[in-house]
C-alpha cells in the first residue's frame, strides 16, 4: 500500500514541521519578529547532537544538551539583537534583515566548523526498520519523530493554556500595551518565549536529520513550510500552525503518487496561494 505508507510518512515528517511551525508561531505572535534565524537554531541543534553522539553520548542526553545549546542561542539573539533593535524603534523590515544576517552567520559558522557537505548520524537504532501491520514500514528515527513531536505539541498547548507563564505569554501576545502597564514585563517574556521556542525547535532539528542527515543550510526549507503553515493556520493559533504543517506535508507526500518529488515545494506554494486567495486570515484566525 504505497498511498498508506506515503500518508504515514507525511504524518511523521509533518509532525516534525508542525513543531517547527508551532515554535515559530509562538515567537511571531508574541514578539512580532519574523524570526528567520530560527532556521539557524534548528540547524545548530542537529549539529550539537551529532557531535555529542559521535563521542558516544546517548541520544537522549545528546538531545537535552543540544536543547540547552539552542536555548542559549535563541535567548542571545533576542537579548543582543531583537531587544536592542526594538529599543531603538527599528522597523519590522530592519529586524527581518537583521534576522537574515544572523541566520547567514550561524549557517556559515556551522559550515566552517563542521563541513558544508551532508553529515550522517550513525545511530543504528535510527535506521532500523520496524514492520507494522498493514505492510507499513517505519524507521526508528521516524517512530521517535512522530511520538516526540506530537508529545511536544501537546505539551506546548497544555503549557500555553494551563500554566501561569503560558497565560502570561498569551497575554503579551494578545495586548502588548496592556501587558506593559500591568507589569507583565513583555520584554522579559520575549526572552522566555525565545528560550522555549528554541528548545522546541531543537527536537525536530535533531530528529529530522537522524533520517536525512545534516546540512548547514538544511533549516531553510523546513522553516519555509512552517511559515506557510503558520500563516495558513491563522497567526496566533498554535493548533492551526501544527495542523496545517501536518496537512501540507501529507499533501506533499501524496502528491508523489502523481508527480515527481522536485515538485513538492511547488505543492507547498500552491497551498499557500490558495489560502491567500480564499482564506487570507488563515483557517483558525482568532480575531
Amino acid at each position: 500500500m504505497l498511498a498508506l505508507q506515503l500518508l504515514v510518512n507525511g504524518i511523521v515528517t509533518g509532525s516534525a514541521l508542525g513543531v517547527v511551525a508551532v515554535s515559530f508561531a509562538l515567537i511571531y505572535a508574541t514578539t512580532r519578529v519574523f524570526h528567520v534565524a530560527h532556521a539557524g537554531v534548528y540547524t545548530l541543534g542537529g549539529y550539537l547532537a551529532w557531535s555529542l553522539m559521535r563521542h558516544g553520548v546517548p541520544a537522549i542526553a545528546a538531545l537535552l544538551v543540544a536543547m540547552a545549546g539552542c536555548v542559549v542561542l535563541g535567548s542571545l539573539i533576542q537579548i543582543l539583537l531583537y531587544a536592542r533593535l526594538e529599543r531603538r524603534g527599528a522597523a519590522q523590515l530592519v529586524v527581518l534583515i537583521a534576522s537574515l544576517g544572523a541566520l547567514a552567520v550561524i549557517q556559515n559558522l556551522i559550515a566552517a566548523i563542521y563541513s558544508p557537505d551532508i553529515l550522517n548520524f550513525s545511530a543504528a537504532w535510527a535506521g532500523q526498520v520496524v514492520a507494522l501491520p498493514g505492510g507499513l514500514r517505519l524507521t526508528g528515527a521516524q517512530i521517535a519523530t512522530v511520538v516526540l513531536d506530537f508529545a511536544a505539541f501537546g505539551a506546548t498547548l497544555v503549557f500555553a493554556h494551563r500554566t501561569l507563564l503560558g497565560k502570561r505569554i498569551r497575554a503579551v501576545a494578545s495586548n502588548p500595551f496592556l501587558a506593559e502597564i500591568t507589569r507583565l514585563e513583555p520584554r522579559r517574556v520575549h526572552v522566555y518565549v525565545m528560550a522555549i521556542a528554541s528548545a522546541l525547535v531543537c527536537l525536530p532539528g535533531v530528529l529530522g536529520p537522524l533520517d536525512y542527515g545534516l546540512q548547514p543550510y538544511g533549516g531553510v526549507t523546513p522553516l519555509l513550510t512552517a511559515t506557510i503553515a503558520m500563516i495558513a493556520g491563522g497567526i496566533g493559533s498554535l493548533a492551526g500552525a501544527f495542523g496545517l504543517a501536518v496537512a501540507i506535508v501529507v499533501l506533499q507526500n501524496l502528491a508523489l503518487l502523481v508527480m515527481p518529488g522536485e515538485w513538492s515545494i511547488g505543492v507547498t506554494f500552491a497551498i499557500f496561494v490558495v489560502f491567500m486567495l480564499f482564506r487570507p486570515r488563515g483557517l483558525f484566525a482568532g480575531k
Binding site: R170, A171, S174, N175
Partner: peptide, 8 residues
Amino acid sequence: GRGIFPDL
C-alpha cells in the same frame, strides 16, 4: 480603548 487581553 481595549484595556483587556481579548484572546484570554
